[in-house]
Design a protein around this nucleic acid. Structure first.
Lengths: 124, 124
DNA sequence: AAAACATATCATAATATTGTGATATGAAAA
DNA sequence: TTTTCATATCACAATATTATGATATGTTTT
């Protein structure tokens, strides 16, 4: 596994077998801030619900109004509006008022990228 | 907005203003399977918890045993083991027994990619 | 103005997820 | 074999999330 030479009971000079303390210190140094982990988790949580994923996948195809989303997905208007609120609050979608309608779209290319990599993953 | 010519009250022949029915039908055709949305949501749900994200970010740096993960993150052993179980069940991490220790690693490059795109996103 | 329509918000019951104490398993050390 | 160590599993209280009915807001039509 490791390409060390021949000595068997060497646990002092070999750099490869470093102590747990060393590992911990080294890895800790490369971590991001506590707050960033939370932000990231909040961001990914958005993708962890199939209703929201469906909405996102539709908006990746084209911009849509709320009622088209409802009808396409055959979902309750309240359900869709609620999820859109969550998506808005997290800056995942934006919308534009057109008369009494609201036309929604994705804010950001990252959203589509993440969706597609995830899809690639589950399709192996 | 749309590059149509000069007529003002044209609502019959112009292909650009299609009815809700047309939009719905067109978009529905490009959707993936119900089951795939669920699978995708399950997959992304994994990233939606900061403890799991922390573990994943450590394993993206180097392979680690459970106790090193606990010590690095200053977390309960049960908590870490539980999250590792979830990660294993979802094929996000794998492990290798080494004596009484278990060395964990990421299964797949997609994991690291998604983590990094997410990080890019929250850093604007 | 009233009616109809598109969307948003509020309140809540049902459900899911989280961290953790208690405990089990299994391997190495004594 | 007993003890110790590393990790896993179980059970569960605390918390978070979901979908949805009821209702509010705001816009167009009549």
């Amino acid at each position: 596994m490791t390409n060390n030479n021949n000595q068997e009971n060497n646990e002092d000079v070999c750099e490869i077998f470093d102590s747990h303390e060393d590992v911990i210190e080294r890895v800790q140094k490369r971590m991001i801030e506590e707050d960033q982990y939370s932000q990231l988790a909040e961001f990914f949580k958005i993708f962890g619900n199939s209703t929201r994923l469906k909405i996102l996948s539709l908006l990746a195809i084209e911009d849509l109004c709320v009622c088209d989303i409802c009808d396409t997905l055959n979902l309750n208007q309240t359900t869709v509006s609620n999820q859109l609120r969550i998506l808005r609050a997290n800056n995942i979608v934006k919308y534009q008022k057109e008369g009494k309608m609201a036309r929604y779209s994705l804010t950001d290319l990252h959203i589509e990228m993440i969706y597609k990599i995830g899809l690639e993953h589950i399709l192996e």
